[in-house]
Amino acid sequence: MIRMENVHKAFGPNRVLQGMNLEVPRGTSMVIIGGSGTGKSVALKCVLGLIKPDSGKIYVDGKDAADTSDRDAFLARFGMLFQGGALFDSLPVWQNVAFRLLRGSLKRPQAEAREIAIEKLRRVGLKPDVADRFPAELSGGMQKRVGLARAIAAEPEIIFFDEPTTGLDPIMAGVINELIREIVTEMGATAMTITHDMTSVRAIADNVAMLHGGVIQWTGPVAQMDDSGDPYLDQFIHGRAEGPIEAVR
């Protein structure tokens, strides 16, 4: 389980998180929605330790995420799909996917790591011949799939998806949504996704949290999202310019 308690983070005068509280039960899929610049990515990065919160606590299965005594073991539990893929340009696709399996505590023999990479690529719908290509030779949709294969390669317990469908055509976005749902279900992983895409929310989420003004404005099961009665959430999910959220930020 992931628990964020009263997390604050500011960048200079810009107070991004102003007391964020959130619980993600083990084995569930939480989707965080909210406008651009509301701190969704910052929240994910705080959990991973990529950004240090100014105050507040974050616990992963009861363990303080700020405890850096065994960072490798802590990070080995996570997989992350970055918004732009964040694939390493200098490495072929299979080495990107098997990155964690080629070094560090999870190191395997190269042939075995390659085999796992090809199997993960197949799992996300890519043919084995993609394995030896470089990221720059792939389309945006293929890069997202490779990023997804990398995120799941070491079979993590917790997977983060940062805007998984941004920049993709609607059909490819649907394919990625389906893949995420299938993978999370079959791996039994805990998932946290941030997105603006309401189709993604409905396809991926068990629970939804809306981040606005640096705090969680509303949270609940996805089935209750449409009848929440929360004016902020209503405005956001229906994409209305009029409402409590200022359209020009």
């Binding site: 990070l75 970055f82 964040a86 694939l87 390493f88 070094r103 560090g104 990398r150």
Partner: peptide, 16 residues
């Protein structure tokens, strides 16, 4: 460029 494209963050999440 790696920093701008989040590749450095990706390295950290991959325990490197």
């Amino acid at each position: 460029t790696m920093k701008v494209t989040e590749q450095i963050d990706a390295l950290v999440t991959l325990s490197t």
